[in-house]
Design a binder for these strands. Structure first.
Length: 270
DNA sequence: AGAACCACCTGGCAGC
DNA sequence: TGCTGCCAGGTGGTTC
């Protein structure tokens, strides 16, 4: 569920409360996530101080003295700060217990998330081959045009491929394509350079607006303090099948593209 | 090589 | 009320 804006929202809300704090214990109630939580993770983190937090795509990194915790929220994960003695609820799988009697508590009903360890996180196999950050200056129309050249894959699928550009999931791929006026099933390699420029700008804009709004909350997203996001109120197409386009009034369509619901306006997107 | 599927898992909801 | 089937924000791996 959480795409780049949601992960960034969680990171920003937690950072002031956990950077500088020492980890005093790791409680793993359920290690069966996307990949098993390493059995020695407790030993590796305990007594280390959280030195900082970063985000790479949808991965949240907590940098400790000798390495980093690599966290992914999958489709249904949330991470929030709570009193370390508060009773865990269903699906509260992991507590990272801090030295101020609070903990970072990972809830993940579907268990598509992950908690891993690396002494060199940016070289970790899951992170090493990721594409460009969409909010970086290096991501622009030229990047899309160059990297999409010759590709027949639908632009929407291309945007969601983390080996090309990270952090853009189903919601924001749909929203960005609407803003750019681009039909989601257009072959990537057929986009003109000016349309690539528009698309890059649309992606940056929609992501930045979503971060400013604290992310999108569909069913269950909350930030590190338990607050929902508000950006879903601004969705132009996502989740709006058969409703009127906010720009032209046409009925929003939904089609499947490699299994994912794709929402688009047949009048505004060509 | 590139594109289309599948798998992983639980919960919520529509429809009967 | 309760059952069944379908759908969901991600993404690595398999298959064609």
């Amino acid at each position: 569920m959480p795409e780049l804006p949601e992960v960034e929202t969680v990171r920003r809300s937690l950072t002031p409360h956990c950077v500088g704090r020492r980890i005093v214990a790791l409680r793993v109630r359920e290690p069966r996530l996307r990949w098993p939580v390493p059995g020695d993770l407790d030993t590796r983190c305990t007594n280390q101080t959280i030195r900082g937090s970063t985000r790479r795509g949808k991965y949240l990194l907590l940098h400790l003295d000798s390495g980093a915790l690599i966290l992914h929220l999958g489709m249904s994960g949330s991470l929030r700060l709570c009193a370390s003695d508060s009773p865990p609820e269903r699906h509260d799988h992991i507590d990272i217990v801090l030295d101020d009697a609070r903990c970072l508590r990972l809830k993940d009903p579907r268990r598509f998330g992950a908690l891993l360890w690396s002494t060199d996180p940016f070289s970790h196999p899951l992170l090493a081959h990721l594409g460009v950050e969409p909010l970086d200056a290096t991501f622009d129309g030229r990047y899309i045009h160059t990297h999409g050249r010759g590709r027949r894959i639908a632009i929407k699928s291309w945007l969601m491929d983390a080996h090309q550009v990270v952090g853009v999931g189903n919601i924001y791929a749909n929203e960005a394509l609407f803003r750019a006026g681009i039909h989601p099933f257009t072959a990537t390699g057929r986009l003109s350079r000016p349309r690539c420029e528009r698309l890059a700008i649309s992606i940056k804009t929609v992501l930045q607006e979503a971060i400013a709004a604290g992310g999108s909350t569909l069913r269950d997203f909350i930030d590190g303090s338990g607050h929902p996001g508000w950006f879903q109120q601004n969705h132009q197409v996502y989740g709006r099948a058969k409703q009127n386009c906010r720009v032209c009034g046409s009925l929003i369509r939904v089609d499947r593209d490699s299994g994912r619901a794709t929402y688009w306006c047949p009048h505004c997107q060509k």
